[in-house]
Write a protein that binds this DNA or RNA. Structure first.
Lengths: 149, 149
DNA sequence: CCATCTGTAACCATAATATTTACAGAAGAA
DNA sequence: TTCTTCTGTAAATATTATGGTTACAGATGG
C-alpha cells in the first residue's frame, strides 16, 4: 500500500463519535463500523486523545467520546494529529554533494514542495468533522444530488 | 519510509539530463549523482521512456537523453508518469455497509480529497524541469537570496 | 465480585521499495 | 571481427511502514 489509511480511518472514527456525542462508543463497536480490529482503533484513538480530540473511559459502560466541538476540528487538524507527513519525500540517501545538481536539487525542491503542500492544507482546513457528518447524514437520507457536498 | 521517493528521484534525473542535452548520460553516472544503484536508475528511466520523456541508447557511448523540451515538462507530468498516486487513501477493508457512517463516509471523503488533490496539482503544474534547472543553477552559483525561487 | 473496556506489549503478515548480483544483447570503436 | 561499454531485465534479499491478532494487566460501574 502506497499510503497510510490512518487519516481516512481517523476521519471515519471522529465522524462516528460526532454522531454519538451523548454516549461513549467502544473500540469494538467502532471497529465494527470501520471493519478492522479493536486494537487498531484503540491505537489510533490513543493518539487522538494525546492531541486532545477525544477522551476515553475504561471499565463498564466506558468507551470513547469527542472532547472538542466537531465544527472546531478541521481535516488539517486531524491530518497533523495522525502524523500524516508530507505527500513528498526526498532521497533515501543524500545526493552526491560533488555534483552541482546533486548538491542543490533538494534546496530547489523544498520550495516547490512547500508551496504544493500549503495549497493542499488550505483545502483541508476548509472542511470540519461537523461538515463531514452533515455530508454523511445527507447521503444516508439519499439527498445527494451534487457531486461534492 | 512513508512515501515513495520516485517522484523526487525522477525530478533529480530529469534536471540532470536537462543540464546535459548535447550528450547522453549513463545510468552509472546518474546513479553517482543520485547516490543509488544504476539498476534503480534504469528501471525509473525505463518508465520515463515509456511515457516519452527520455530515450536510451545501448552500447558504447550510449546512455540516456531528454526527448521533450525541459520547459514543456511540468512537475505534474512527471508525477503522473511515475505513478505517484493520491496523497490520500481509503480504508484497506471496505467499511461496514450496515452502519450509516460506514456506508457513506467514503462518498463524503471522495469530494474533499478530490478538491485537495486538484489544489496540489494546480501548484505542481506551475513548475517545469527548466525552472528546476534554473533554480539549481542559481543555487550552484550562490545566487539564492530568496527562500522560494 | 463480575462483566466490560481501556492500555499496551508482542508477534506475525503483507506490501511497497530499495539494493544488489548477474547476465543477455545491442552498438560504437579499434 | 573483436572488445568494451551500456542497456534491459530477472531474481533474490533487505528494509520499512502498516495493519491484524492474541494476550493480559488494570480500571470501573453495577
Amino acid at each position: 500500500m502506497n499510503l497510510s489509511t490512518r487519516f481516512t480511518v481517523a476521519l471515519h472514527i471522529l465522524t462516528l463519535l460526532a454522531s454519538s456525542r451523548e454516549e461513549p462508543l467502544t473500540s469494538e463497536y467502532i471497529a465494527g463500523s470501520v471493519n478492522t480490529n479493536p486494537v487498531v482503533v484503540r491505537r489510533l484513538l490513543g493518539l487522538l486523545r494525546q492531541k486532545g480530540f477525544v477522551s476515553s473511559q475504561p471499565g463498564n459502560r466506558g468507551g470513547w467520546q469527542l472532547v472538542r466541538n466537531p465544527d472546531a476540528i478541521t481535516l488539517l487538524d486531524v491530518r497533523r494529529a495522525v502524523n500524516e507527513g508530507s505527500p513528498f519525500s526526498m532521497h533515501t540517501n543524500p545526493p552526491n554533494p560533488a555534483c552541482p545538481v546533486g548538491r542543490n536539487i533538494q534546496g530547489a525542491l523544498t520550495g516547490v514542495y512547500g508551496q504544493a503542500e500549503r495549497a493542499l492544507e488550505a483545502e483541508l482546513v476548509q472542511t470540519t468533522i461537523q461538515k463531514l457528518l452533515r455530508s454523511v447524514q445527507a447521503r444516508a437520507r439519499g439527498l445527494i444530488f451534487l457531486a461534492y457536498l
